[in-house]
């Protein structure tokens, strides 16, 4: 009953949002596109990182791969096929990276994922300048702003639906065990590596698609634009702010923060990164479990799982 009601509300909101382009001006539509993009990115980020505790800064690597695929292929292939190819490339890169690195813990993974974004950017730049002889590409696609918005909205809905669905499958259950205690998880026969890789890949494909769908908005694309590390940072902070381990957390975090950043970058372009940093510190100190977690702590009854005293987790952080 509760689930059905939740679906009904979500569906109503989705329909209302789908009709939004008919009522708003081009500026607001631009905002909505950016907002939906970040809601999707933050939700996709949390799908993997929020549930496994692996802080990933590779968001922009996949986002950029998506955008670049569209830039390179949009003139030679029909658009839906381009999206498919982008998703496939995202899948391959994620599988490679996942197989190689998901054994790393803590800070190693953070640095690795950040380096991955830099690496991809440098490789693309190098390829474009020395092999292709140009830097930057133009994208001419007959897509209006509302088309991009609808695609993103559908992707956002799909991401949330997937997250919800995964929570109730065996995969979701396995994740819960892994998050609580990896040793126990491996003893009851959960394939830890594959569970992580599956989730990482899924989250990466969604990020790739966000980049691919948003690409036509820019018209002109170059590595410095689509591989800007700020995208990774913003995604991370939005998901954390909302609460990365909850279904609606990242979305709820992305909405206020996106608007805030939009306002900050317009009003204080010079002091933007100082304010961003301060906000980061405040969130880490005051809201370690995000807004959703904070509200749960304050107002709600505790879920049965939280009542059970959790044993202190011992992970080999130094490995």
């Amino acid at each position: 009953m509760k689930t059905a009601l939740g679906f009904l509300v979500a569906l109503t909101v989705l329909t209302a949002l789908a009709f939004a382009p008919l009522f708003v001006g081009p500026y607001q539509l631009g905002l909505l596109i950016g907002l939906t993009g970040y809601v999707t990115l933050a939700s996709a980020w949390a799908l993997f990182s929020g549930r496994t505790g692996y802080v990933s800064l590779a968001t922009v690597a996949f986002f950029g791969i998506g955008a670049y695929t569209v830039a390179v292929l949009s003139e030679t292939m029909p658009y839906p096929l381009v999206l498919l190819v982008a998703a496939a490339i995202g899948l391959c890169v994620a599988l490679l990276v996942g197989l190689a690195t998901l054994r790393l813990a803590g800070v190693y993974f953070v640095i690795f994922s950040f380096g991955l974004a830099e690496l991809v950017r440098q490789l693309v730049t190098w390829f474009e300048t020395s092999v292709n002889g140009t830097l930057g590409r133009y994208i001419f696609l007959p897509l209006e702003a509302e088309h991009i918005y609808w695609q993103l909205l559908a992707l956002a809905a799909l991401t949330l639906l997937l997250t919800w669905w995964i929570q109730r499958t065996r995969l979701g259950l396995a994740l819960k065990v892994i998050a609580d205690d990896e040793t126990v998880a491996s003893h009851i026969g959960i394939n830890i590596a594959w569970t992580k890789i599956a989730l990482f890949t899924l989250s990466a494909i969604i990020m790739t698609l966000v980049g691919a769908i948003q690409a036509p908005r820019w018209t002109y694309v170059e590595p410095a634009i689509v591989f800007s590390p700020t995208v990774s940072f913003l995604t991370l902070i939005m998901a954390l702010f909302g609460g990365a381990s909850r279904l609606w957390g990242p979305a709820l975090g992305a909405i206020p923060l996106f608007l805030l950043f939009e306002w900050l970058s317009a009003s204080f372009p010079n002091h933007y990164s100082i304010l961003l940093g301060l906000l980061f510190i405040i969130i880490v100190f005051l809201l370690p479990r995000g807004v959703v977690g904070f509200i749960e702590d304050k107002f709600q009854r505790k879920s049965p799982a939280d009542l059970v005293e959790k044993p202190a987790r011992v992970k080999e952080a130094d490995q």
Partner: peptide
């Protein structure tokens, strides 16, 4: 409560510090 959480927390907090110093 343990080194793993400390690592993640320190990463996130110094991340903020990174932006502040860089911004200045």
């Amino acid at each position: 409560e343990n080194t793993a959480t400390l690592e993640i927390n320190s990463i996130l907090a110094t991340f903020g510090l990174l932006f502040v110093i860089q911004g200045v």
